[in-house]
């Protein structure tokens, strides 16, 4: 069956099986930032944004995305330039092995789209569905707070 959707502002048509998860479809079509983790919606490595909201793509039937607008980590950079959020993750050492990073970035991006002035608690809550097993959480949380501040200054 065919699946029509928009990913990172580009219209796409994918040939899918009714049994495919959204994660399967995205990875098979080159969106390798979407990481295959726990397969049970716990670790958040497969997080993508669907119509403005983060979901765990490993437990999300691809068929649910007909006509949806998606953002993956590939869509955060513009014209080869990383987003402020991505820059802050690098600058503040919020990345170690990197496996959880795309999911973390998308959870943070979804938060900042809705709430440009997050409190510390908001950031912690937004990242609560993204497990990191090496850096920990302080640096990612700090990076999101710093990005929010800089984005506000840039406006």
């Amino acid at each position: 069956m065919k699946l029509n959707l928009k990913i990172n502002s580009e219209n796409k048509v994918f040939d899918i099986d009714v049994r495919d998860t959204l994660m399967d479809v995205l990875r098979a079509n080159g969106y390798k930032s979407v990481k295959h983790g726990c397969e049970t919606g716990e670790c958040g490595a497969c997080t993508v944004i669907v119509n403005g909201l983060t979901v765990n793509s490993c437990i999300y039937p691809a068929v649910k995305c007909e006509d949806a607008e998606l953002i993956t980590c590939e869509g955060l950079e513009k014209d080869g330039k990383l987003s402020i959020l991505q820059e802050k993750f690098i600058e503040m050492g919020a990345i170690q092995c990197g496996y959880c990073t795309p999911g973390m970035l998308l959870s943070a991006h979804a938060l900042l789209m809705k709430n440009p002035n997050p409190k510390l608690e908001d950031v912690k809550d937004a990242l609560s569905g993204n497990f990191c097993r090496c850096t920990g959480y302080k640096k990612p949380v700090d990076a999101v707070m710093a990005a929010a501040k800089e984005m506000k200054g840039a406006k």
Binding site: G41, G44, T47, L53, T54, V55, N56, I59, Y60, S107, A110, D125, A126, S128, G129, N130
Partner: peptide
């Protein structure tokens, strides 16, 4: 609802 697991799960 705000204590319900993670944001990703709450969204679905």
């Amino acid at each position: 609802a705000g204590k319900f697991v993670s944001v990703q799960i709450r969204n679905a």
